[in-house]
Design a binder for these strands. Structure first.
Lengths: 248, 248
DNA sequence: AATCATTAGGGTAGGTTTTACGCTAACTGT
DNA sequence: ACAGTTAGCGTAAAACCTACCCTAATGATT
């Protein structure tokens, strides 16, 4: 029995943002990209884990670098440990890029949610990073396409279970924006009138006095998310609906 | 920037079983346990990951060893990467036990579900392994108590979302057994009549002609779980209940 | 042999939630 | 002024959840 000690451990993050219409993910252009090799040009942000660093810390570090933000909604998913996930040219690229010598890289997948505001877009634009519509992505470097698909699955499930949607929206948002976000991520159609009832009925959206301006229809009210009210409601409603509608 | 390459990567598994009354977990006695050290005697089954082995494969290997079974319900949870999770005597024990020399072990937590039948109990009894009631566990080796708690949380959530309960029950079971399992894992009381309606109404329990014998009350019918019917129901019902009762 | 304790298993009535959809309000562009 | 659009309120029917009722069948107790 030989024990592997020279595999390296990395983190890769799928950073999601929502522009009001569709779900985007942050992609990085490889620094020493050479069109003559057959490597894909874009990848997810990631890094090797450093000495004395926990994985969540490594992920935070990657995200701070990629987005300029320290406080980010961040969640671990799974580990991608197939010995064949990075080989050949890709492995050489990694060793060259990180200045290491490894034969195997096991990576831990994270996904993160950020508010895609003007500041964010300006910051990432300077970093050879791009916000790309998730739907349109065909290939990515290494197995990053697979990591992205996994992340999307996790996001869907999480959206149905907890109020993570608000991590993707600006502080003030309209109910329609919230609805569009759910519809985009889950790929379903939602009736606006029922959505409004359900979401307002839950009591953790607090209305502001502001309304949309310059839209060619009745302007919608802006709301903010009340985390405290949510947590209160959470405790009261832990009735679990009994065996909780295990629908899927 | 120094990159850590000599951390070792291991897997640890919380293997759950249900004896009809309470939830149990499989614990292993450390082979060279010495009561004079202050190490806890019991630990979760686990192993270092080997060269050319994926993590799921390593976990399967551990489980095959601990339970004698190859096909087991197995799920990855999170990674325990705190540099301080294993130090001092515990670290020495690991290095001695595995014949390695590492300063840091990152472990990937898995949980597994098995049918706790007579064969299983006989097999584990021979392996210095014990099925211990989850509720009664106070301490475990290293950070295994924390891994166990995490696994229990995952199990609860999973039980509400998918029909994993049947992994813990014999092929033929009564509705009461199923109910007791839910009640035990979730720590709630369940009304028998409503539970029966809900579960039978879902249509993926198929009745057999057999009934309990030797019980001092009306004997209950045995049912089996119909995976195909479940998957069919799943697709029809992907209505999601719309934004699905995000209750907790 | 009658009675008791216990769980199985069918039912029903009332409340809550979901779903489908009608309607008016308010804004911009033509 | 009118068309096109989305906001936002309301309502009725269907589905679902909950709290109970009842009787059936078995072994244990008297």
């Amino acid at each position: 029995m030989s024990v592997q000690t020279n595999q390296s451990l990395s983190v890769d993050c799928a950073v999601f943002g929502f522009d009001g219409r569709s779900l985007k993910v942050l992609l990085i252009e490889r620094r020493d990209y050479n069109p003559e090799t057959h490597l894909d040009r874009m990848k997810l942000p990631g890094a090797m884990i450093q000495e004395n660093e926990t994985l969540p810390r490594a992920a935070s570090r990657v995200l701070a670098e990629a987005t300029g933000l320290r406080e980010i909604y961040l969640k671990q998913m799974e580990i991608f440990s197939d010995p064949g996930r990075v080989t050949g040219e890709e492995l050489e690229w990694i060793n060259r890029y990180h200045g290491i010598r490894t034969e195997r890289v096991v990576t831990v997948g994270y996904y993160a949610l950020v508010k895609l505001d003007r500041r964010m877009i300006a910051y990432t634009a300077e970093k050879r990073a791009q916000w790309v519509e998730v739907e349109s992505i065909q290939h990515l470097a290494m197995d990053h396409k697979q990591i992205l698909s996994t992340a999307l699955g996790h996001l869907c499930r999480e959206m149905l279970q907890s109020p993570v949607a608000f991590e993707l929206l600006p502080r003030k948002f309209t109910i329609r924006q919230l609805q569009n976000l759910y519809a985009a991520v889950l790929g379903i159609e939602i009736d606006n009138r029922n959505f409004r009832k359900k979401i307002l009925g839950s009591g953790f959206l607090i209305p502001t006095d502001e309304r949309e301006k310059g839209v060619s229809h009745k302007p919608a009210r802006y709301y903010t998310f009340d985390k405290t009210a949510y947590k209160r409601a959470l405790k009261e409603k832990l009735r679990l609906g009994f065996i909780n509608n295990w629908r899927y």
